[in-house]
Amino acid sequence: MIKTVDLKKTFIGRGQTVYAVDGVTTHIKQGEVVVIIGPSGSGKSTFLRCLNGLETFTSGHIMIDGVDLAAKKTDLNLVRREVGMVFQQFNLFPHKTVLENIVLAQQVVRKRKTAEATEKAHMLLQKVGIAEKESEYPIRLSGGQQQRVAIARALAMDPKIMLFDEPTSALDPEMVGEVLEVMKQLAREGMTMCVVTHEMGFAREVADRVLFMDQGKLVEEGTPEHFFTAPQEERAKAFLKQVL
């Protein structure tokens, strides 16, 4: 599904070169739920943003369904419509109602008819449990509701894979549960997911595989049981001691 080969991303600023992502090679298979954890600044968000081309990478390769993002002739817009993304700050479109948020890209990008797009939007709002809010503007929704709308908006494009960039980090603690519940449901339905999160409980319960990143490098990877009970690397052990 997604293969990255020696992925590198460097930022150059004030004469210093920062290796945000430093040689990550991994493979996310169809239907797999991969959770990326690591300390702040470890490059996990940057890695995720590279996967749908929001961030350009310096060297290496990303293959999505056999399409190489590094190739010059690759149309990123075509790739992105197959890769859904959910942001930490929701990034709903504030000038559009909940329904319009979900319908817009279907019409503009997928060229669906209004009726078809609206039906799809209703179905998804039902699924994430906020069907009654469809004509509200995002500002009137709680953080958890906004994030569920954002998930529905991404799902409306029928993506083959969903990327979650710290989807619960900007939420009040009591709203975290409702968003995680929606994500668990997606995982059960067999959606391929790549999740950057600090929710260790979610990682342990839902992940098929955990990637631990530090200073841009992929330090350790394995099943949740292996990672949370018997990590091999010192850095991972130290991290887990802090967070668990």
Binding site: N77, R81, M85, L92, A105, A154
Partner: peptide, 14 residues
């Protein structure tokens, strides 16, 4: 906010 453009692009808009 930059996130608006990113959200739009992530949905496949040019």
């Amino acid at each position: 906010p930059k996130g608006q453009m990113e959200a739009a692009r992530s949905l496949g808009m040019n």
